[in-house]
Design a protein around this nucleic acid. Structure first.
Length: 179
DNA sequence: TTAGTGATATCC
DNA sequence: GATATCACTAAA
């Protein structure tokens, strides 16, 4: 079932690992529906996080991160690649989760290329959009934390945070996630 | 390893 | 108005 607003209204450090293993559903303009399981996410958390776009304050580009949880934030990186994020947490607190990879689509740029995601989805709601949303099919996976990548400009302290979450082995019914 | 690409932010 | 920067990828 489609994830609800309460799922995204939590801290990005809770949402990011929870999104791993969920299903990303994309409906193309021609009606084709693609479903990919999310394999890797990263949390970007507030103005204190020097790796977060919003750490220098609110700008035209980052104002979406200050908005409501569940807004889709798509931005162009290196002039070529569209990266897909979802806003999380409370309003006026800039944080979000980057969807970094799905099963069979490794790399955020490849992911959005495969799903034909671009700027027109920026600042749309993941609850009401008919083009893109996330579902939970009940499966649970082990979560493997790791350091974030591609943030060489961030502070040493922030680079060391284990705010990247990768999909591990599938868990049996009732089995708890081990830390 | 290196080049390419273009929106954004920052500097004149 | 101009330019430096960048959460990447593909080709070699």
């Amino acid at each position: 079932m489609r994830l609800e607003d309460t799922f995204y209204q939590r801290d990005c450090l809770l949402v990011a690992p929870d999104l791993v293993g969920k299903l990303l559903v994309r409906t193309l303009p021609d009606g084709t529906q693609i479903t990919l399981r999310i394999a890797e996410t990263e949390a970007y958390r507030g103005e204190e996080d020097t790796a977060c776009h919003a750490h220098k304050g609110r700008t035209k580009r980052t104002q979406i991160l200050y908005g409501k949880a569940g807004q889709i934030y798509v931005y162009l990186c290196y002039g070529i690649h569209w990266l897909l994020n979802v806003v999380t947490g409370e309003e006026d607190v800039p944080q979000g989760v980057l969807i970094r990879a799905c099963v069979d689509a490794k790399g955020p740029g490849r992911l959005t290329k495969a799903l034909q995601v671009d700027g027109h989805l920026n600042d749309t709601s993941i609850f009401t959009s008919r083009e893109l949303w996330i579902e939970d099919d009940g499966k649970r996976y082990d979560i493997v934390p790791d350091t974030r990548v591609g943030i060489g400009y961030a502070s040493q302290e922030d680079q060391m945070r284990l705010w990247r979450f990768k999909m591990g082995a599938e868990l049996a019914e009732g089995q708890e996630i081990t830390k």
